[in-house]
Computed example of a mutant assay.
Amino acid sequence: MDWKTFQALLSGVNKYSTAFGRVWLSVVFVFRVMVYVVAAERVWGDEQKDFDCNTKQPGCANVCYDHFFPISHIRLWALQLIFVTCPSFMVVMHVAYRDDRERKYKAKHGDEKKLYNNTGKKHGGLWWTYLISLFVKTGIEVSFLYILHHVYDSFYLPRLVKCEVSPCPNQVDCYIGHPTEKKVFTYFMVGASALCIVLNICEIIYLISKRFVRCANKLKRRNRNMGRHHDKYNDDDHFNNCSVAVTKPEPEPEPRELKEQPPSFRSALKPSFGPSGLKLEEKIRASAPNLSTS
C-alpha cells in the first residue's frame, strides 16, 4: 500500500477541518499510520511462521492458527485506517462540486458575481456533509473495535493457547510469537482509536453547539431589528398626531346664552345717537308723521 499517496490525498481535508479535525488528522498520521508502517508491520511480519505447536501432525498448526487468528491484527488495522479515512473524502468531493458550480456560474454571469462567498466554508449542505462524515467515522471506529474484541475475545494476547481442532490428534499447546510486543502494540492502537473517537465526538458537539449559537444570535438580531422598527413606527405616529394637533386647533365654543338668545325688537329699533341715527329718524318722520318711535 502506498501510504504517501494516501497521505497526499487526505492532507487536502486539513484546510476544511476544524481544530478538532486537525488534531484528529495528526493523531491518525502520527500515532496510527506511522506506527503501523514503521513498527507494527515488522512485528506482525510473518506471525504464522512464529506460531509453534507441540505436534508434528500435518495441518494441525495451520488449522489452529486460523482458529485463533481468523484475521491478522495488522490487516484489520489496515482496513480500519482505509475505512475510517474514506468519509473525509466526502468533504473534499463536496468542495470540488462547489468549485465546479462556482466556475460555471462565473462563466455564465461574469467574474464579479459569486455563487458562494467561500466554497470551503461549512454552511448549508457542506455543514451536513461534514457532520455526517464525523458520524460515519465514529461508527467505523466503534465497529472495528468491536470486531477486534469479538474475534479475539479481548484485546489481550496470551502466550499459550490450547487447540483441539481437527486434524490435531488431541489437545495441542501452541505458542504465539512475540506475545508481549504484540500486546503492547495492540493496546497502543486501541488507545489511538479510542482517542480518535473522543475527538470525533468533541467535534460533533462543537459543530452542533456553534450552529445553535449562530441561530440564536440571528434570532436575537432579527428581534432587535423588529423592535427598532416598531419603536420608529410609534415615534412617527406620535409625531403625526402632534403635528395635526398644532396645525389644526379646535375653534373655541361661543357662549351659549349669546348664541341662543335672539335680539329684541326694541334694541333693533333703538335710535342711535350718532349722525347716521339722526338722519334715519328724520326719514321715518317725513314718511310717517303720525308714528312715534317712543
Rank of each mutant, 00 (worst) to 15 (best):
V198S: 05
R221V: 08
G274V: 03
A288D: 12
E112H: 07
V95Y: 00
N170M: 06
H238V: 05
E112L: 11
I147H: 03
L157F: 01
M226Q: 10
L148V: 12
V63C: 09
K49A: 14
S287H: 08
L219A: 14
S193Q: 03
D100V: 11
N241G: 14
R42Q: 10
E47M: 11
E41I: 06
V136I: 15
E164D: 12
G12Y: 09
I284W: 05
C202V: 04
S154Y: 10
N240S: 09
K104A: 15
C242P: 01
M90H: 09
N290H: 14
A286R: 12
Y175K: 03
D153A: 14
V43S: 06
L9S: 10
Y233N: 11
P58H: 05
P169D: 14
L278P: 01
C163G: 09
S267T: 08
H73T: 04
N241C: 05
Q7H: 12
E281T: 11
V43D: 09
L291D: 08
H229F: 10
V190W: 00
Y97N: 07
Y16F: 15
Q261P: 02
F185V: 06
K108C: 04
W24E: 10
F144N: 04
L157Q: 00
L160A: 07
N62D: 15
N240R: 12
C163S: 11
K210L: 05
R285A: 14
K162T: 13
V244M: 15
G177T: 11
K218E: 13
G139P: 05
G274E: 09
G177V: 08
A61I: 05
I74R: 01
N54M: 07
C174K: 03
A40V: 11
V28W: 00
E252L: 14
K108E: 14
I147D: 02
